[in-house]
Amino acid sequence: MIKILFFGQLKERLECADLNLEYAGEHTVVDVVQQLLERGEVWRPLAENDVLVAVNHTICAFDATVRDGDEIAFFPPVTGG
């Protein structure tokens, strides 16, 4: 099982703050995105160019490895401060 979180405008557009995904083996963030995109058109914003990803609280590339138990977060560019 992996936990997936969404923040900011992306959370609103997806109408989803978080979800758990059954997960086995070692894949990449791209594979996780693909799995979500296959759920339907509503997930399309995840494929946009400016979406950032963090695995276990560290921003990483979309080819980063995801393991069972990981926490993945997708979000738009940050705007704090």
């Binding site: 923040f7 405008q9 979000f75 560019p77 704090g80």
Partner: peptide, 19 residues
């Protein structure tokens, strides 16, 4: 780098701030 996001409410309604 720090994961914070701002949403502004203006006289024209709310909107997320762009980076």
């Amino acid at each position: 780098l720090a994961p914070f996001w701002k949403k502004e409410t203006t006289n024209h309604g709310p909107h997320w701030v762009d980076a």
